[in-house]
Write a protein that binds this DNA or RNA. Structure first.
Lengths: 218, 218
DNA sequence: GTTACTTTCGGAACACGTTCCGAAATGTTT
DNA sequence: AAACATTTCGGAACGTGTTCCGAAAGTAAC
């Protein structure tokens, strides 16, 4: 946009890009959980309130960070057939998210719509376009993407949650809870028992994805 | 548990059940978004800090509330074939969550494992047991449940998010963002455009579920 | 009755995200 | 120069979830 409008008023002391950059610095130095708006403002040498003139929300900032991460991820070479393209793009999307330690936190910030930032849309589009190619009409194509998206985010969240459960103390609690189930009332779960937790920790994304895509397109 | 241990020390002024009941009262009276720990303690006539001796966390309280809701939901009559059983139980689980206006908030509180409270397990078990019946071994049966769970929660979250987007002002933002897409870079999304938002608002859970289950068991 | 022990209670304080609203800094007009 | 319009800045304050740690209230032993 080469529009240089009248440019009236006090000039901004900070840009959105600077904020994102400072946030990344802060995260790399002190860790994700120490990223607060106050600390971020201090890092930039501005008042905390000022952040709100550049970013709607803490959540909006997180989405900017997520998109910033997606900007550095490349879509791999894709197969020709639609199904293969969907699988490859989904796996790339999954890996991009899984390599981001704080993805779980951001992904649960606001559901699943606004989350799709500018750069992530490349991945989204590949999947939607492939579903269209495979003969789906508009609404079903979007539905295909959504199912894949749920599965992708879900598997990441479950694994993150499983890690947190292991780190805190209450993994024994949960396993004990499973073990204490009444086999008459919940025979299936009683059969599985503590292995539930074990399974949740295992990354079986690719297999599940292939089955899912086959079902969606089949 | 008829164990009556020595019972030493100061007797509790409140029980977990009373806390949950008070929370429900508060929600019914003032709305979900006004449920805070301070107000809850005030409702009970106890100090805010005291809540923490009965409940680990705000999140733990939400999970108790969710389970309390599931305790009032009945599993419908189920077909004989495993696939039909899975579909029916999943739909019941979905309806139970969808009828809970604050489900989205709770479901994103902590991922997907601890979330499965005591009463909800009836639904979980029905699905897992049916997958076992359909010939799946332990780990795949759990994987089947997880895929269904992701889809169920995801569709609820998307619809909740879509409603919030409509309520706030930034639906136009997002639609405009979609409309502004470069058709060369994202041809699929450019084709779909603003209808994305429209589709997200539509409840197509049953159709999607049937396709999903067919894929998972096929 | 006194002491010791165990458990629950809750006031005070902290950091957080967020909002109100007035101050500050610029471009434009007179 | 001066007044105005427009935009950004940020201090103060609110309500939130959460933790520290000492006070309170009971039971058991002496």
């Amino acid at each position: 946009m080469p529009e240089t409008a009248p440019r009236i008023g006090r000039p901004p002391v900070t840009s959105r890009a600077q904020i994102v950059a400072a946030a990344r610095t802060l995260i790399d130095r002190d860790g994700w959980e120490r990223l607060t708006l106050r600390r971020l403002a201090a890092e930039l040498g501005i008042g905390t309130t000022t952040l709100y003139h550049h970013v709607r929300d803490r959540e909006a900032l997180l989405l900017l960070l997520l998109d910033d991460h997606f900007a550095q991820v490349e879509l791999p070479a894709l197969p020709d057939d639609p199904e293969g393209r969907i699988v490859a793009a989904s796996a790339a999307m999954h890996d991009a998210l899984a390599s981001w330690p704080w993805a779980a936190e951001v992904l649960t910030a606001d559901g699943f719509i606004a989350l799709v930032g500018d750069h992530a849309l490349t991945f989204v589009d590949t999947i939607v376009a492939a579903a269209l190619d495979a003969g789906r009409s508009h609404e079903p194509a979007v539905a295909v993407f959504r199912s894949i998206w749920y599965y992708t985010v879900g598997e990441i969240l479950v694994r993150a949650s499983s890690a947190r459960v292991r780190a805190d103390g209450w993994r024994p609690d949960f396993e004990a809870h499973l073990a204490r189930l009444d086999p008459a009332r919940t025979p299936g779960l009683a059969t599985i028992g503590g292995r539930w937790v074990e399974y949740a920790a295992r990354d079986t994304y690719p297999e599940g994805l292939r089955a899912l895509v086959r079902g969606l397109l089949g």
